[in-house]
């Protein structure tokens, strides 16, 4: 059964849009004339529909890469393509933010002054292509699918942080993006909520196949969710090792105790620890 599942996801991958190609990207920050290289000749190829986990120690420049894809800031050199269309590269160093690539932020960015439902309809309402009724109907349906029924008219501040994250993901999915960019979204959650959120995320992913670019420093999270782990070196940020996670999807929490999971953990841990150590030492030198 697992083999057929795997074959299934593989065949779907080829038709799903949202392939990201990062080619030789360099990002140099230049505050006060002291050039700091955040990303160093980084090349990553992510097929459409893949959950790609970017793993690295805090402050290694992973977020820089994400911000470049999202279009929040430019790159110094290199190119980034989405489905073979240039997002940013020579002549246009900063991508235009757009609803084909939506970010789920580290601390959550639901608008606290709008109800959960108003947050979910925000994107389509701004777009103004569909009628209000159609948008609201779709939003209510999607929220119900994600287990958010009954929270529509609460404000984000009134529901738990786990539910807030789910609302945020649904808000992103309303626009049918090709890529979801996660910037350590579960960092602030407790481990119990986290595990529920992981299963919920996979659940949502199985229903809406999108490419997921997921930044984390939590290895367990990375292996549980990802098709592939890209372990980054600490500053400057550059792929150091790629770990293919051959545990078939759909996954649930029993995966965590499987021998293969442990093996992958061991494999990845060595590399991550080495980088974390380097980052720590570098931090000490700077301090």
């Amino acid at each position: 059964m697992s083999a057929t599942m795997n074959a299934d996801t593989n065949s779907q991958k080829s038709v799903i849009k949202g392939a990201i190609r990062i080619e030789d990207v360099v990002k140099v920050y230049d505050p006060d004339g002291a050039a700091v290289m955040a990303v160093d000749h980084c090349s990553i190829d992510i097929p459409g529909g893949e959950i790609c986990m970017i793993v690295g120690p805090s402050g290694c420049g992973k977020t820089t890469l994400l911000n470049a894809i999202a279009g929040f800031h430019g790159i110094t050199s290199g190119e980034i393509y989405l489905d073979n269309e240039l997002l940013c590269g020579p002549g246009k160093m900063q991508a235009e933010p757009g609803s084909d690539r939506i970010v789920v932020f580290q601390n959550g960015a639901l608008f606290p002054w709008k109800s959960n439902l108003e947050n979910v309809v925000f994107g389509p309402m701004m777009e103004g292509k569909l009628s209000k009724e159609v948008i609201y109907d779709k939003a209510i349906k999607m929220m119900a699918d994600a287990g958010l029924g009954g929270t529509e008219h609460s404000f984000p501040g009134e529901v738990s942080s786990g539910l807030r994250r789910r609302v945020e993901i649904v808000r992103a999915l309303m626009l049918e993006p090709k890529v979801l960019l996660f910037d350590e979204p579960y960092r602030a959650l407790d481990s119990l909520t986290k595990s529920v959120m992981h299963e919920a995320l996979l659940d949502i992913y199985y229903k809406n196949k999108v490419t997921i670019f997921f930044i984390t420093h939590d290895l367990e999270e990375a292996i549980f969710l990802g098709h592939r782990l890209i372990i980054m070196s600490s500053r400057p940020c550059k792929p150091k090792k790629i770990v293919e996670v051959d545990i078939p999807h759909p996954r649930d929490y029993s995966v965590l105790t499987s021998p293969r999971f442990r093996e992958l953990m061991e494999e990845a841990k060595g590399v991550v620890n080495e980088e974390a150590k380097k980052a720590f030492e570098a931090g000490e030198k700077e301090g």
Partner: peptide, 21 residues
């Protein structure tokens, strides 16, 4: 928080919409 304005732009809001919402 900058995240809010970034989120609004991600979700396709233009300058005026970001200002208003």
């Amino acid at each position: 928080d900058e995240s809010y304005t970034r989120a609004a732009r991600c979700l396709g809001a233009n300058g005026w919409q970001t200002f208003r919402h």
